[in-house]
């Protein structure tokens, strides 16, 4: 059976660190950064990239449209 691998890219300059994507991820992929962007916001990143399935839950709930989602059957 083909395995589905996913990945996301966060527009860190646009992200405001609201944390909603982190709590919406069903596979515990995301965390908030310790660093801040130019505006002083933390931003989300993939802590556990291997868990990502490209389900796009994070992108769907993101209020700022910061998340690009990629998906590949391998």
């Amino acid at each position: 059976m083909a395995k589905i691998k996913g990945a996301i890219v966060v527009d860190t300059a646009r992200c405001k660190g609201c944390d909603i994507c982190v709590t919406s991820c069903p596979f515990d992929v995301l965390r908030m950064s310790r660093e801040v962007n130019e505006k002083g916001y933390t931003y989300s990143y993939m802590l556990n990239p291997d868990n990502c399935t490209g389900c796009a839950s994070c992108g769907l709930v993101c209020p700022d449209g910061c998340i690009k989602v990629y998906k590949l059957k391998v």
């Binding site: 990945a7 944390d19 209020p63 449209g65």
Partner: peptide, 28 residues
């Protein structure tokens, strides 16, 4: 990341949404 290729893109903000950063508070 080898998955991050244009052909694998499945979700992105709409082209009808401008690139302006919204003035709303985080999480609004």
């Amino acid at each position: 990341n080898p998955i991050i290729q244009p052909e694998n893109l499945v979700y992105d903000k709409s082209a009808v949404l401008t690139d302006n950063v919204m003035h709303y508070c985080p999480g609004c």
